[in-house]
Computed example of a mutant assay.
Amino acid sequence: MEVRHSVHPEDAKHYTTEELRKRFLIQDLFVSGQIKMVYSHVDRMISGGACPSEPLALEVEKGMGVDYFLERRELGIINIGGPGVVKVDGVEYKLETTDGLYVGMGAREVIFSSANKTQAAKFYFNSAPAHKSYPTAKIERSSIKPNHLGSIKESNERNIYKYIHPQGVQSCQLVMGMTALEPGNMWNTMPCHTHDRRMEVYLYFNLPEDAVVFHYMGEPTETRHIIMRNEEAVISPSWSIHSGVGTHCYTFIWGMAGENQTFDDMDHVAMPDLR
């Protein structure tokens, strides 16, 4: 498991392109037969990907200081690949593409499997510290009523699917969901915002091989960008905006952790204030 330390905004404004990518960009999440994880000291979020050719167990890392992965944590999973199965303490949950699963604190065994080897599952997950256990629950995308926002005029027409949130599948502090842009739309989270009370991680996917997303980050008056490709993730500290524009429409998974779970708790940035 790779460890990323926290970054002060005064330092980030001086980073080169490569330094920005090293600190915030997460690549190669879905390597066949492996689980890739990045531990961020920003709210101690763990983001990862599992691409099983054979069953893969979620193992505790020595640096976590516990006996098993979810001893003091909770876990949110969304499958972006072929059909798969997640076994939690002996109970199997079948996840089709874009189905999700919440696993509460205290679960001892989590095993990822693909339903068939010709089209491997790709399980993306976020894990945050927890102090209370909530029931494990499967989340079918087809059962979620999306919030339809934006317009083609502003190039941001999109559907927001909330998977783990206070009015749906409950958790201790993790909030997780997915935003899908309609064809012909390119922008997400613009006008932009920060939320000083929560960090966020984005995973961009459903991008063609030759397409990119320009992900904007940094303080509103000190913006920077990271060029991202299909199935790459980016860490967004609480002081940073998190917005993107693509050369093609795309989908992204967002995961948050911090002081509250209020989706609309945002510090909006006026367009004239951006620099």
Rank of each mutant, 00 (worst) to 15 (best):
A137V: 15
S133W: 02
L149R: 13
D99Q: 04
E92K: 14
S114N: 07
V85D: 01
E54Q: 13
P146C: 13
E109Y: 02
L75S: 08
S133P: 04
G90Q: 07
I139R: 03
K62G: 02
G150M: 11
F123W: 02
Y124W: 15
R73Q: 10
V66G: 01
P146N: 12
F125H: 03
K145L: 14
E59M: 14
I78P: 09
A50T: 09
F112Q: 06
F123C: 04
Q119E: 14
A50Q: 11
A50H: 11
E54C: 02
A115S: 13
P129H: 07
G81T: 07
G49C: 10
G81M: 10
A130L: 07
T98P: 00
D67V: 01
G90D: 06
E109L: 03
G104Q: 03
G65Q: 09
I139Y: 02
G104I: 02
P129K: 07
I111M: 04
E140N: 14
G48V: 06
L149M: 13
H131C: 06
M64R: 11
P146E: 12
I77L: 11
S47H: 09
L56A: 08
V86Y: 03
G48F: 08
P135S: 09
G63P: 00
N147Q: 14
L101Q: 01
Y93N: 09
G90R: 08
I111H: 03
E54T: 14
R108A: 09
K138P: 01
L58A: 13
L56N: 06
